[in-house]
Structures are given as structure tokens and as C-alpha cells.
Amino acid sequence: MEILKLENLEKHFEVHSRSRVRRNLIRAVDGVSLAIPEGEIHSIVGESGSGKTTLGRMVAGLLEPTSGSVVLGGVDMFRSGRGEIRNLRKSIQIIFQDPYASLNPRFTVRQILEEPLRLNRLPVQEGDLLDTLRQVGLTPPEDFTGRYPHELSGGQRQRVAIARAMIVRPRFIVADEPVSMLDASMRGSFLQLILSLRKRDGITMMMITHDISIAHYVSDRISIFYRGKVVEQGRADDVVLNPAHPYTRALIESVPSFSRGDSEGSRHPEVPSDVPDPATGCMFRNRCPKAMVACEAVPGATEIAPAHFVSCHLYGGTGVK
């Protein structure tokens, strides 16, 4: 059964242009619908400016959507009673990208972990606290409770951040680029920690990342995000091994790898980076090597294989203007 459901979620920002007459509407998140079943890790893959962080903030309840809904366990996050929303917020925890900014520099590790418990009026138990630290690999936990963030390495800080999210036993975790600021040698152990927590506690998670290899490694399903829209969605292996959308293909082609290490002749992805976005239709069409006339209309989603959806006219996506 799905635990999280996004229905046609939209967030538009109004940007005043210099003249103040014309207002630009930025569609940061533009009609996203997806469902995440219990115990699944779903990755949102997109580049900076794709709206993926805005999406995560809405799911975590930090930002109100322009329209659409975020439903967790049957409760609508923005259209329910106060008590229900309080409860919901307890059930959703968020892990941020920057382990240096996500912990209050003036709190000790103990204070950081106690905060969500106190704010959600949950009992603070020493045993729980130490157990949680042990689970995230900060052992012996007694050595860490009295430390301040500046006394920890980046990897340790990110473990504290995950402990803070885990301690209230949430039903759902949003992780916004949780490893992008960690060194490569620290990254792996952090991803393994996420996988082991999922295995043990059945955590459901939405992971937001720009790195499709990391998404492939940890997640069950992947949504490829481009300019506020999901352009491709499916099981992680399907999306990575049989990418359908031209953008997904370019993304995968661009991932550097050792296997090509010394092969002469560099790769030339056919996708230019520096072209302006079109005002209408498929947002990728100005960069797309396969763009055609039909692309002037917004493509709808087509199921090209079981549970593998693509929004592209190449696959018969019927135009919805």
C-alpha cells in the first residue's frame, strides 16, 4: 500500500521583472503525481534548478503548494485539522544536504537528538538516544552525546542528522542530497547505512539527488525530474538500463566512469547545455536531439513497459496543451 501520495502537486513562484509590469511565473514544481509504497526508496533525480528541492520541501511540509496535495497515510498535509497535521509532521522527517548547516552549532549532539522528541511531546529516554546513535554508526554513543557539531567530521554530522530524523520513528523520510557534500570515501558507508535502516526498520524514503548512479544504487524506483516535471519514472533498473527519455539518456551518458578511463577521444553528448528554455510545450525540446513538431505540445505520460512511464512524444505521448 502506498504511504505517500502526491497529486498534481504544483508550486509556482512569482518573480518580479525589472519593469514590474510583467510578472514572470516560475513553475518550480509543475504538476507532479507519484505514489511511494511503504518500505520503498524513491529517488527524484534532477539537476539544480529542476525544482527537486522545492518538491522535497513541500513533502516535508515546509512549503505550501500552489495547488495539488501531499497525502501521507491518508491524511492531507495541507487540508487537515491542526492536530492531524501536528501528527503528520512527526511522521515525516527531513535530512538536509549540508551537514554543516543542518545542525545548530550551539547544540550538543544530545540536544540535537532530544529536540524532535520534546517538540513532538514524546518521552526522552536515554536508552533510545544511545541506541539511535549506535544504529547510525556513532559508537560508542557516549563519546558523541556531549559533542558540538564543530567537533565532528562531515560524515559524522550527517549521521547525527540521520539520527535526529530516526529518533522519532518516522513513517517517511525526505533526504535532500544527503551525500553530495560528503567525500567519496564517506559516501558509500552512508548509503549503506540508509539501506540497512530500510532493511531493519522498513523506512520509506524519498531521496532527492542530482547523481543518477547514487539513485540507482539505493532506490527501488526513480523519477527523472526536468524543469518541474517528471519526465520518466520507473523501477531503478528499468530507468537506468533502458532509459527512454532523451534527457535521461543524456544524463546517463554524462556520468563519468573509470571504464572509459584511457579510451582516446572524449564523449560528446549531443545535448547542448546553454540554450534557453522554450515558453511552451516540452521543456526539453530546445536541447533535444530528437525534437520534432509535436514537441510544441506538452507530452503526456505513456507506459512503455510495466510501471515504466515516459513523458515524451517519441513514445506517443498525446499532447495536452
Binding site: 567519496a184 570515501s185 558509500g188 558507508s189 540507482h216 566512469s257 573509470f258
Partner: peptide, 23 residues
């Protein structure tokens, strides 16, 4: 060797190893 093994590869699905300890 540790650095090579800790890189998540898109092309070959393998267990990633990590370098234990702190920098």
C-alpha cells in the same frame, strides 16, 4: 584502491566498499 571501490558505478552493479574511519 579504497577510493576506486567506494565509487558508485552506474554501469556495473557491485557492492560498494567504503574506507572505514574518519579523514
Amino acid at each position: 584502491a579504497g577510493l576506486l571501490n567506494s565509487v558508485v558505478s552506474l554501469r556495473e552493479r557491485r557492492e560498494i566498499m567504503t574506507i572505514p574511519g574518519e579523514p
